[in-house]
Design a protein around this nucleic acid. Structure first.
Lengths: 248, 248
DNA sequence: GCTGGGAGAGGCTTA
DNA sequence: TAAGCCTTTCCCAGC
């Protein structure tokens, strides 16, 4: 395609906040949080109405190069079309040099609509909050998403012995990070409240090493079995995997 | 566009592992790791040769719905075209119901080429390894295969007092996680070697709360100043921000 | 295959 | 704006 024509079409699409796809042979440079060069090759550049700018190759979900909320410019130079994307905070620039453009399409799109997602951690937390006795008899909810000075506790409760119970919920296999997150919260709550405190990690499963760490810390793991059925999420079972510190 | 024609074109593109973009009005359902529904609206579906399957709206870098490495199927039903993507491990399915298709493009693409990236953590680590005296006089790199290969730490060294020094490097602002990771590794190395061990966190900056935790643990923070200049990365400065435990 | 961890993470929510 | 953190994180390197 004639590059001067492509330039006009792109400028129009950007102005009208259309979604535009440009396919052609290009070379890409990026400089900002890091720096990168992508050798000349056939790629697809997708530009969205909000300044999303992405170079795609024919594999992987994620674009090879990208920029969010960019300002876009076009210029012709030496039989090439140079498309630049740039932004501040952090300062980043990307230069895409097209040697030829095979195709250019642009589309007037709807307003984006929201995805209704089921089975998120937040939804699980809500379900669990409905009935903590699922977890342990006599457990009473104190607060959901209790804000700590550092971070957010998923659920704070009190057990039948009057001990504080800090609960961290994960929708997938728990790892080191989850364990340490819980430990951090438990320590903090214990410090703030000056009461005996337990820490519960709830997840579908836990990695072996993470579990060792958890046990070393005296935390408790509960395996949760849930189903992301329609239209919401159902907790099917909850099984205790550790004795509490106080039972040992 | 005529949906039966679209169906054939898509099947051909998938078979030939082309990159295909379908734009039209559709409704999307996903079920797998979670579940979701996306109301009817105008979207772009991008299918790549490796089974990447992504529903894009006209905002944000990331697709609204997606699946990697999927198997793709097409069928006509009641004046709609249903495109399904599915995979095992984990079992996931996605159904895209097109009520009409405005446009369909497919492209024969090159083999994807590798991005040459500068300023990655790995590259910074290599640079730092070149000259540890940048960090502290008398610091000597240790090539402790077992520790380094296991990926426990970025760099292991010995200071002039003969203490082990565990170094964790972050290319961006260090957070809680970075501090706890370092602490975990330091404990582990200390256990393995049975020697006095220091833990150094090197990052451009550190979050306030993370820093408090770091100080509580007796770890040390060094602010690194680096530049991702072309063609590689240059460390411009390195400033110690904490006294060591042993100096206190 | 599982595990660990980085990423130019992205993106959301709340202080 | 910054902090904190979840994500259908994605993706890769090791084992």
């Amino acid at each position: 395609m004639e590059l001067s024509f492509v330039k006009e079409r792109i400028e129009h699409a950007v102005l009208c906040k259309q979604l535009a796809n440009i396919v052609g042979t290009c070379y890409v440079e990026y400089w900002g949080r890091a720096a990168s060069k992508l050798p000349k090759g056939k790629r697809l550049l997708m530009i969205k109405g909000d300044g999303s700018f992405a170079i795609h190759q024919n594999r992987l979900l994620r674009p090879t190069n990208y920029m969010m909320g960019s300002t876009i410019g076009c210029e012709l130079s030496d039989d090439t079309l140079i498309i630049t994307a740039s932004k501040l905070h952090p300062k980043e620039t990307m230069k895409v040099i097209f040697y030829n453009v095979d195709d250019l399409q642009s589309y007037e799109m709807d307003e984006a609509s929201d995805l209704r997602l089921f089975g998120s951690e937040r939804e699980l937390s809500d379900q669990l909050m409905q009935d903590l006795s699922f977890l342990e008899a006599g457990l009473k909810p104190l607060n959901q998403e209790e804000v700590l000075r550092k971070g957010l506790v998923d659920i704070l409760a009190e057990d039948k012995e009057g001990r504080l119970v800090v609960i961290e919920l994960k929708r997938r296999q728990a790892d080191f990070n989850a364990v340490q997150q819980l430990k951090r919260y438990m320590d903090q709550v214990q410090n703030m409240k000056g009461k005996k405190t337990r820490g519960l990690l709830i997840a579908p499963e836990i990695r072996k090493n993470a579990r060792e760490l958890l046990e070393k810390y005296g935390l408790e793991f509960f395996a949760i079995d849930f189903e992301v059925s329609n239209p919401s999420t159902k907790i099917k079972g909850l099984q205790k995997k550790q004795k509490t510190l106080f039972e040992l």
